[in-house]
Design a protein around this nucleic acid. Structure first.
Lengths: 127, 127
DNA sequence: ATTTGTGCAAATCGTTTGCATCTGA
DNA sequence: TCAGATGCAAACGATTTGCACAAAT
């Protein structure tokens, strides 16, 4: 998989890929992945985690999710889909594919082309 | 306007409000507003700009726009609408109201309610 | 007089970078 | 061998915070 993307299969990258793709689709932050790696007894530096996440993203293995908050989340689900965002605990959840459709997409201003349409449905816990 | 929102009309707040609402709808970052204030000969500290932006947002006078990038943008247009985001230069543009519709909004997971639906149409300059 | 806001500088947080050292092909 | 990867610590940019001072009611 790594080789197929032109990335050397190093110890760290293989371990991180293992964590990322072990249990279905995930939304994880750099810090989150770093912690998981540590508790899985895979000592990687935070810098390497950042490098790896960006390289994976460039290789199309991950997708950066821009929700609110200051943190960047990475999504192991690279298919076309949108997200719920729980404001109470900064949690990102996939909206099942086909679970929603975007209506009329507007014409982009002249000279521009659309690269992607992102929909974020913000949620709050009902009290 | 400030009084109506329960905010004391201080020199700085009035000056910042003036800049914000002077020329139609705007998308501005804290740093951007600070710079404009400075060149308008209104010396305010960056901390005060941040305070003011957040207070205005809480008061419903502004809306925080979560696009990509590390910066936070504030929108003087608080009506229901969505955004174009130009990736080349981090510019936020309003999609005219009614210019697009969101299709089927999905059921939120049980125990949650929808607070808002944000659509960001990402653009790239055509080369 | 009392409460609320402001400015400054230091602190924090997530992320990036420089560089010496290692490692996979 | 040697280009590419990693780790560390220092650098960074955006935002927040603590606290003394100033201004609004």
């Amino acid at each position: 998989m790594l080789r197929g993307s032109g990335l050397r299969p190093t110890r760290q990258r293989m371990a991180l890929a293992g964590i990322l793709y072990a249990k279905g689709n995930r939304h994880i932050s750099a810090e989150g992945l770093h912690e998981e790696a540590m508790s899985a007894k895979v000592p990687v530096s935070l810098a390497t985690v950042y490098n790896t996440l960006h390289q994976f993203t460039e290789a199309g293995l991950l997708r950066e999710v821009a929700v609110d908050g200051s943190k960047t989340y990475f999504d192991t689900n690279v298919t076309d889909h949108h997200h719920f965002f729980v404001e109470d605990d900064n949690q990102v959840i996939d909206i099942p594919e086909g679970g929603m459709g975007v209506g009329d997409i507007p014409e982009p201003p002249p000279g521009y082309e659309i690269t992607r349409v992102d929909v974020v449905v913000r949620l709050r816990r009902v009290r």
